[in-house]
Amino acid sequence: MTALLRVVRAGPLCTVQEQGRFGRLAHGISASGPMDNDAFDLAGALAGADDGAGIEFTRAGLTLRMEAGELSLGWAGGDFAVHLNGLALKWPGCAAMRAGDEIDISPGAWGNYGYLRFGSQLNLPLVLGSRATSTRARIGGLDGRALQAGDQLSFSGPASRKLPKPMPEEPTIGPVRFVWGIHADVFSPEVRQRFVDGQFQVSSMMDRMGVRLIDEGGVFADSGVLSLVSDPILPGDIQILGDGTPIVLMRDHQPTGGYPRIGTVISADFDRFAQIRPGEAVAFAPVSVEHAHRLLRSRSS
């Protein structure tokens, strides 16, 4: 039984995502995948999906119309308003859709990224092992591009009957934790201290590749570090551009780079960082690798 969804309206950065395309950095391809993994997983649990692709949308929102068949959907990530045929539903939440139904998602109080997951498998080819869209390499998803009005998505397999899993834990608050980076030593002790003490702002120049920060206190204004030999990059790396602008590299990051990296956001705080909106403040706190691992273990237990 095939289900069909039509994209009625989609923001410019709305993409199909799935667990990333890992193991391809040597080929020049960063893994991609959801900007907020926990939210992606929660939406999947709510839809009754164990794995498979979903849609990542931004504050620009999304409207989809069911054209045929039936489909269970789950949604989560940040705060959004969701309406099914004009009726407001809970966020995060889930529902079943039938032919003729229309779902509309618009931004709420916080967050940059939300997810729609499905109880059936989205029919798209695996590209190098994943359906995740890479906006950098232009592969995966729908021809490596963002969704746009008029696109049709087809699904196969029965709509799932699984029960939704429990609701999410309370979001962590406080500074975004990081591990000191491979080039932390090229910054003076004073600059490192000011980085930890200072407050930054997420700028409007943010996307799946990276988030530029506004350095209001001028922490890096005079750090004057020349570019270095290129080394591999991973998501969460905090690099300082030649003009002193800090930029946190995200899921569609460039695979290598030669700007100094003062630190790397830990895995447990990456999702939370991705949801910080432009104009909002962010501070950074250093932790050890071992502490970061303990945080990961406490989340999975």
Partner: peptide, 17 residues
């Protein structure tokens, strides 16, 4: 050998090419 985040190590044989 230095950590690059909490799930990778970078093994560096030089700081310039």
């Amino acid at each position: 050998i230095a950590p690059l985040g909490d799930a990778a190590l970078l093994v560096r044989f030089g700081k310039s090419l």
